[in-house]
Design a protein around this nucleic acid. Structure first.
Lengths: 341, 341
DNA sequence: CTGAAAGCGCTAACAA
DNA sequence: TTGTTAGCGCTTTCAG
């Protein structure tokens, strides 16, 4: 019961052929005859043979593994997109080697080094902003990679994502159009997060275009969590000049912000309008339902898988895939109260 | 600019030593002199050397990679526990190879095969119920593994988790103690999910102990999603005999269930009490805050990492780690209305 | 403390 | 269509 795991050569012996034939058969190469294939498969099954990936990777220079580096898994949006990525990779026989950098771009370098060391065939990164050293390392190791959740401004790297700035402008313009003039924004931490920064920039630009400003005390930068969103709203509500519209950097924060209003019996959207970003499941189900920007996370994960696999396979592939985002107007926004503009 | 990535032998040549010395130095073996170590590290840095994991794994029979199989990443609880697992592994120089079986235990076998093939040193599984073939495969390949989120009833396998049945009994007993007699349960899909099944069993047992039953039309089995929780509550509310207390299989469903009540202006907990399970962040922040069972997901992930690493290292380790769970009474539960018992 | 040398299990030329 | 054979890059005895 304690014999070592079967190797390819054991399968070959049992099938009465040479190792190369087994290798070819198991790789389903068309040069192997049908009868041979059956014999080899029977032998492999009988021995419970599981290929030794490391040996295969060493020789074939291919691991059928793709790496992904996220800021964190502890966030529904990334978890969901990662799930889609994982499924799409799985469908193509690839596995996902996962790492998190915890919103620290220097840490990302170390993490990517570990990933390269483990022998990934390709890498999926989040956001367009990364340390130069990271790009150098990836280039030196000729590891194909893909930026996601944003569009690469430099045009140097393949990417699949959407325009965070334009999306944020859409939100701001909608609120402006229904009459809001007093804005606040609850943003995630901007350092090392180009998506967050672009969203703030989009809001600022939209306001400027109408001759308005986002006062600095109305821009709160805080972690991307429910609790932080709730606290930020508390700060805004207790400040002297209360805004009529609060744009949140993502849905998690927006749900926190809305719950703070509800707990204080402040009517949303009657007294204050709140918007989110991403359109997670809860956004449409909680009451009031959240006005937000729908980001196609599933499509993003799926497109990322297709694109990185195309690069790995040396197949032609779009360098830039821009996904459409939509403003979803639901129950947390309304025109400001008469006399409040 | 297109030279191949540096190998160990290149580092050796640059440092003027042999490959074995570099290998030892980089592995920080104590037999290497300090001066030698410095020289080797300088050479490695200069060349931007990244070890070739596949070669190392092939020779050393160790990949410094741990696999994990989840039902899905598309669920805050698993995502959070996985995050903790990933961080703890990272601290010990291990990476996480991730896969999902999508609540299909037959699929789990395939997925684990891929994981073994990729060369994992150990495996973390969710739940205590798995296909026999899975165990056989793992044993044949001598891959250490660990069951999590539940306790292994057979005592055959190492596990770190908690007693789902007892936890569910606690919830039911609390509701019984404050006077409820008309119960309903919104459970996740039970097939292939021992955690869900044990939670239902716990509720049933607690009711039986007081001479009560869970009527079959008051047990709704549905996916573990917000939307499903909401729909299930809708079904319960429109049925002829409305329960006074609804026990949900997890917090996500409970939040959905509560939001359905709120949308119908049914007071929670005044008209109906609702409980969750897991204590995710939103449970304490939304209004009304959810009465639930706190499951220590961080500790679970962390303990899982420690325990699987101990097994891998052949170190002594607890075979069974039982974590404590707590009933957290918050705003969604109250005694039933007078005359309703 | 350091060097020499033998593979780990597999794939892909090249031969037959 | 199948067999023979030479490594992939690293670790680890075994010598020195």
């Amino acid at each position: 019961m304690s014999k070592p795991a079967a190797k390819l050569i054991d399968v070959a012996r049992l099938a009465g052929v040479c190792n190369a034939t087994v290798s070819r058969a198991l790789a389903r190469e068309p040069t192997v005859s049908a009868e041979m294939l059956k014999r080899v498969e029977a032998a492999a099954r009988e021995l419970g043979y599981v290929p030794h990936g490391a040996a295969s990777a060493l020789r074939a220079r291919r691991s059928r593994t793709v790496g992904a580096v996220l800021p964190t898994l502890d966030n529904m949006l990334y978890a969901k997109a990662t799930h889609a990525l994982q499924k799409a990779l799985d469908d193509s026989g690839y596995m996902l080697l996962l790492a998190c950098h915890d919103f620290d771009l220097k840490n990302e370098i170390k993490v990517v080094r570990s990933l390269i060391e483990r022998g990934i065939d390709g890498l999926v990164l989040i956001g367009a902003e990364h340390d130069d050293e990271l790009h150098q390392m990836l280039d030196a190791n000729k590891t194909p990679y893909l930026l996601t959740w944003a569009l690469d401004g430099t045009g140097l790297h393949p990417c699949v994502g959407f325009d965070n700035r334009t999306a944020a402008m859409r939100v701001a313009n909608y609120l402006l159009d229904i009459g809001h003039r007093d804005f606040a924004m609850i943003s995630g931490v901007i350092a090392g997060n180009d998506r967050a920064r672009k969203r703030v920039a989009g809001v600022r630009d939209a306001l400027h275009a109408r001759g308005l400003e986002l006062p600095s005390h109305h821009l709160i930068e805080t972690p991307f969590t429910l609790a932080a969103g709730r606290e930020a709203m508390q700060t805004l509500l207790t400040s002297t000049s209360r805004p009529s519209a609060v744009i949140c950097g993502n849905d998690v924060m927006a749900v926190g912000a809305v719950s703070e209003c509800l707990a204080r019996s402040i009517d949303v959207p009657g007294e204050i309008s709140v918007t989110g970003f991403d359109d997670m499941e809860a956004a449409s189900i909680l009451s009031p339902a959240l006005t937000t920007v729908r980001v196609p996370m599933r499509e993003l994960g799926y497109a990322a898988a297709q694109q990185i696999l195309a690069h790995i396979g040396g197949k032609p592939a779009a360098r830039v895939t821009e996904l459409a985002v939509d403003l979803i107007v639901r129950g947390t926004t309304a025109p400001p109260r008469a006399g409040r503009r």
